[in-house]
């Protein structure tokens, strides 16, 4: 009886192990097939025409994506990094800190379409403007804020206390310590956070639908910043790659809609994956360096 009890135990163990192994690998294979499909399908259509900066190509959308993400990074860095400094260095224990932390958490879990509507209301309706890139960038920067805040806070918190003590010991004020010692020392980690945020920014769509607009009309010989077709004018409608996919699938007027969408997806995938790999590699290097000391 004892023997059969053990055999049953062993059998249950084996069955569950097989189940876990199967579940994990089938999920991973599905994910790999997913990437493979997007890349394979996309690369088939990545012709010179497709990559051109014309109405037929995706160059303009690609440029809009990069420009918009760049602007949102700037905005969210201006707000998010000081907020992280506040949490790590200035905040005292109390209700205010709890409140700020709660805010960071809430912001990071808000659906992007809700933030998009907020952006639409504040940056479009209330300013009486047309769809424009600046509104889109500001909206996306709200979505990036929590990530940058918590990355900055964590980066500062992992610094050794001795940096602060020696800096104060040399007669530095708190701000001098933060500016000249702590922020430079935390810079690699904050940079990693910015790259992570950029990776997410590239994929954002729902927040841009009602802010950045679904059209783009760039003329590459127009460098008058005030003109609505100047590439660098942030106050022009600017369809990004993600919005382009959405537009193609819902209002597919163009003949090669499917091909364009496939190419867009592949470009986005390359952008997102390469940025998150860079961020990963950087934090790996930082950890290794820290561990080495």
């Amino acid at each position: 009886m004892n023997d059969s009890h053990f055999a049953a135990k062993k059998r249950a163990d084996n069955i569950m192990t097989v189940f876990f192994r199967f579940g994990a690998w089938s999920a991973v294979i599905l994910l790999i097939a997913f990437v493979g499909y997007v890349m394979g399908e996309g690369c088939r259509y990545l012709t010179a025409d497709m990559l051109s900066f014309t109405e037929k190509g995706l160059g303009n959308q690609f440029f809009n994506t990069l420009y918009l993400v760049f602007l949102s990074l700037v905005f969210s860095a201006i707000g998010g990094i000081p907020a992280g400094v506040y949490l790590a260095e200035y905040a005292r224990k109390g209700h205010l800190v709890k409140w700020v932390r709660m805010a960071v958490e809430t912001l990071s879990s808000l659906p992007s379409i809700v933030v998009g509507l907020f952006g639409y209301l504040v940056f479009i309706v209330m300013t009486h403007s047309e769809w424009n890139m600046l509104a889109g960038a500001l909206t996306v920067s709200i979505l990036m804020l929590p990530l940058l805040t918590s990355v900055t806070e964590d980066a500062l918190r992992t610094l050794p206390e001795s940096y602060r003590l020696s800096s104060y010991g040399l007669g530095a004020s708190q701000w001098q310590t933060v500016l000249h010692v702590l922020l430079p020392a935390a810079f690699p980690r904050i940079m990693t956070g910015l790259i992570m945020a950029a990776g997410r920014g590239f994929g954002e769509a729902a927040a841009l639908m009602f802010t950045a607009g679904m059209s783009t009309d760039i003329r590459w010989d127009d460098w008058n910043l005030g003109s609505p077709s100047c590439p660098l004018n942030p106050l022009r409608p600017s369809e990004t790659l993600t919005l382009h996919i959405w537009a193609l699938r819902t209002e597919a007027l163009e003949v090669n809609a499917n091909e364009q969408a496939a190419a867009c997806s592949a470009i986005l995938m390359i952008l997102v994956v390469s940025f998150s790999l860079i961020a990963r590699y950087m934090s790996y290097r930082i950890d290794k360096k820290m561990g080495g000391n």
Binding site: Y86, V100, L110, S173
Partner: peptide, 30 residues
């Protein structure tokens, strides 16, 4: 140093509090 320190403290705290206001603002507008 004292002067900058006071200014920075005000600005940084403002950013922290501003951060906390964002979701509240979103909630209010919605």
């Amino acid at each position: 140093a004292h002067r900058n320190d006071r200014t920075a403290k005000v600005l940084i705290t403002a950013c922290g509090v501003g951060m906390a206001l964002v979701p509240i603002l979103i909630g209010l507008f919605l």
